[in-house]
């Protein structure tokens, strides 16, 4: 410890520096926090592998299906062009090939969303949040830094995994005559929107962790919103009447999912509307979380 005078100007000793809190510093701090946990690093690597793995599985299933159709057609003396094969799918069946990069997206939603909950709920669980708030007593910058890091990480991992999935899919489908490459309509769009969608899920996860301050509770609610709710909503379509068939598309997972597809379908919201609706859901969680974070005792 160096000796020094008590006049304010000369107060800070050189060894501790004299800078105040900067947002860049808070970002760096949150980055160190994320990467200094071995569990996070392993989890992120496994997530990347899992999204690609599930995507590759989906590629295999579709390939097998298409290959069988083509073989059956040949046996009956017909030739089936890839265009005909593609048209044989019912619309909205999820068999559009441009969507292949997002085949493993559910894994990303589950793992990255949970990681986002834990990014702040684990601080409440361990007491670390008090150290965080001591260093950044305005609180909002720490939350914003966590949000930015989660958005970047979710986006990068999801788009990397999507691109990797597509790299696996491309030669497979080209091999059976499909005209599928990076320039195919919707491919780049679905890769980049897939990243945005998972980033949005991560923001909802971070908000849930902040609101509930509990890891198990936050992850449970997240799974409830993105998995249980869509199953529950699918039961609504069983109710007689046209009305109920159009309700499920407004839940977060369906609206977000719609954002990833291209083209207009009658009776279904357009992709951009789905995207906006999903953004609304993100804000619905994010804004109260930021307000309560600022107000509540820690």
């Amino acid at each position: 410890m160096s000796t020094r005078t008590t006049t304010p100007a000369a107060r800070i000793s050189s060894s501790a520096g004299s800078r105040g809190v900067t947002f860049a510093g808070v970002l760096r701090s949150e980055w160190i926090k994320l990467w200094s946990l071995m569990s996070t690093r392993i989890l992120l690597l496994l997530t990347l592998a899992a999204i690609v793995g599930v995507g590759a599985l989906a590629v295999l299933i579709r390939y097998t299906y298409l290959d069988e159709i083509a073989r059956n057609a040949r046996e009956q003396g017909q030739t089936m062009t890839p265009e005909m094969m593609e048209q044989s799918f019912p619309p909205g069946s999820g068999f559009e090939l441009y969507n292949l990069p997002n085949a493993g997206l559910q894994i990303g939603i589950l793992v990255l969303g949970s990681l986002a909950v834990l990014f702040i709920s684990s601080e409440y669980a361990t007491g670390m949040i008090r150290s965080t708030m001591n260093a950044v007593p305005r609180r909002t910058p720490a939350f914003a830094a966590k949000a930015i890091i989660l958005v970047v990480i979710s986006y990068v991992i999801t788009t990397l995994a999507g691109a990797a999935t597509f790299l696996i899919a491309m030669p497979v489908f080209q091999g059976i005559g499909f005209d599928l490459d990076w320039s195919t309509d919707g491919v780049l769009y679905s890769i980049s929107t897939g990243g945005l969608y998972v980033a949005g899920v991560a923001l909802i996860g971070l908000s849930l962790g902040t609101l509930l301050r509990n890891s198990a509770g936050g992850i449970t609610v997240l799974v409830g919103i993105f998995f249980v709710l869509s199953i529950a909503a699918s039961f609504l379509t069983l109710i007689p009447g046209e009305f109920w068939k159009y309700v499920p598309q407004y839940i977060p997972s369906e609206a977000g999912g719609r954002f990833l597809s291209i083209g207009h379908t009658d009776g279904v919201i357009d992709p951009w509307q789905g995207g906006l609706l999903f953004l609304g859901y993100v804000l619905l969680f994010l804004v109260p979380a930021m307000i309560l974070l600022k107000k509540r005792d820690v």
């Binding site: 060894s15 501790a16 520096g17 800078r19 809190v21 510093g25 701090s29 160190i32 260093a135």
Partner: peptide, 13 residues
């Protein structure tokens, strides 16, 4: 790493 993360907020070397 705990101390490093806290130090980073203020640019403490």
């Amino acid at each position: 790493n705990h101390l490093l993360a806290m130090a980073a907020t203020h640019g403490i070397p």
